[in-house]
Amino acid sequence: MSTVPKRFEILLVAEHVEDRGGASVTDSAVRSAVVEVTGRHGETGYPIYEGHGIRADIDPETRTVEAILVDGRELDYGLTALVRLADRP
């Protein structure tokens, strides 16, 4: 298995937006957070990343969010979590 990235940025975007008016996904996200690997694995078997009120099990190879909690709650309907490598601090 490849090296697990230490940080990701999670973008929460509304699924129902059809036209962003030229705005990027980053600019139209309702919330974003940089999360860092905790060294633990979630029930999904993937590494847990946490930060800024978000806890997510992320498949580091496909960058897929397998489970997510936002402020201790499940993600609201109509929102999608997208993942990208975080910029270095």
Score class of each variant (00 low, 15 high):
residue 64 T to F: 08
residue 47 P to T: 11
residue 44 T to Y: 01
residue 24 S to V: 03
residue 2 S to Q: 15
residue 35 V to S: 03
residue 83 V to R: 07
residue 58 I to P: 01
residue 38 T to G: 06
residue 6 K to C: 09
residue 8 F to H: 12
residue 63 R to E: 15
residue 15 E to H: 12
residue 6 K to W: 08
residue 73 R to C: 05
residue 43 E to P: 01
residue 43 E to C: 00
residue 41 H to S: 15
residue 53 G to M: 08
residue 19 D to C: 13
residue 42 G to C: 04
residue 55 R to Y: 00
residue 48 I to Y: 06
residue 15 E to T: 07
residue 87 D to W: 02
residue 12 L to H: 07
residue 80 T to F: 08
residue 30 V to N: 06
residue 89 P to Q: 07
residue 30 V to H: 04
residue 34 V to T: 09
residue 17 V to T: 00
residue 31 R to Q: 13
residue 88 R to F: 11
residue 65 V to E: 06
residue 83 V to T: 10
residue 49 Y to P: 01
residue 23 A to I: 05
residue 55 R to F: 03
residue 88 R to M: 12
residue 14 A to S: 14
residue 42 G to W: 01
residue 9 E to D: 05
residue 10 I to K: 06
residue 27 D to C: 00
residue 79 L to D: 00
residue 46 Y to I: 06
residue 16 H to L: 08
residue 32 S to H: 07
residue 68 I to L: 06
residue 75 L to H: 00
residue 22 G to F: 03
residue 83 V to Y: 07
residue 28 S to M: 11
residue 51 G to M: 13
residue 16 H to Q: 13
residue 71 D to W: 01
residue 62 T to S: 14
residue 49 Y to F: 13
residue 19 D to A: 13
residue 78 G to L: 11
residue 27 D to M: 09
residue 39 G to S: 10
residue 23 A to T: 03
residue 48 I to H: 02
residue 48 I to N: 01
residue 81 A to R: 08
residue 66 E to L: 10
residue 81 A to E: 03
residue 3 T to C: 08
residue 64 T to S: 14
residue 72 G to A: 04
residue 44 T to A: 12
residue 66 E to S: 13
residue 45 G to Q: 12
residue 29 A to T: 03
residue 21 G to Y: 02
residue 86 A to M: 11
residue 77 Y to L: 14
residue 20 R to Y: 05
residue 83 V to H: 08
residue 17 V to S: 01
residue 36 E to Q: 14
residue 33 A to Y: 03
residue 77 Y to M: 14
residue 40 R to F: 02
residue 44 T to R: 11
residue 70 V to I: 11
residue 48 I to Q: 10
